[in-house]
Each structure stands twice: as C-alpha cells, then as structure tokens.
C-alpha cells in the first residue's frame, strides 16, 4: 500500500547503497590506478648499481642508457635495459 508506505517511511536520511558503492569504488579504483603506474622503489638504486658495473668495462653516458620495468599480463615482469655502444668505447 503506497499510502501506508508514505506515513511509515522513515524521516531521517539513511546512508544509501548507492553512496556506499561510490565510496568503495573510489577507494579501489584509486588503489588500482596507483599500482598500474607505480615503478618499484628499488628501481633508482638498481639503475645506479648497473651503471657502476658497466662503467668498470665500458664508457656509458647517461643519455645512452635507459632502463624500464614493464608489467605484462599476469605475473610476468620484464626488465628492459638499453645501452648504446659506440666504437672505441672500451676503457683499456
């Protein structure tokens, strides 16, 4: 009965399920976006260490070196190093 509903309806505004849904989504979406874009914390130090080792043997300028960690599907991560080598670069 609509008439009965009208009088028995609670006056105070309850927290709606839609607002719960929005709140939950905002949290999970923000979290997932973060993990999509985030590079691991160890990457800068790893870059530095690799460069040091390389420079024991060859000349490597900062521009001719790049490092990239890519997340592929599932659990596969690919660490990609790009080092440009030129002639007469060996140190000895």
């Amino acid at each position: 009965m609509a008439l009965l509903d009208y009088f028995t309806r609670k006056k105070e505004k309850q927290v709606t399920t839609a607002s719960k849904a929005k709140e939950r989504l905002q949290i999970i979406v923000a979290h997932e976006r973060n993990s999509r874009n985030k590079q691991p914390d160890y990457l800068p130090q790893l870059t530095e260490d690799i460069l040091q080792v390389l420079r024991k043997y060859i000349k490597v300028s900062d521009e001719s070196f790049s490092i990239n960690l890519d997340k592929k599907d599932g659990n596969l991560n690919v660490l990609e190093l790009n080092i440009e080598l030129h002639e007469e670069q060996s140190i000895d």
Partner: peptide
C-alpha cells in the same frame, strides 16, 4: 539511492 548516478 539504489543506483550510482551519472555524476557518480
């Protein structure tokens, strides 16, 4: 209040 709105 049962469904996410366009704005949401």
């Amino acid at each position: 209040g049962e469904m996410l709105s366009v704005e949401d």
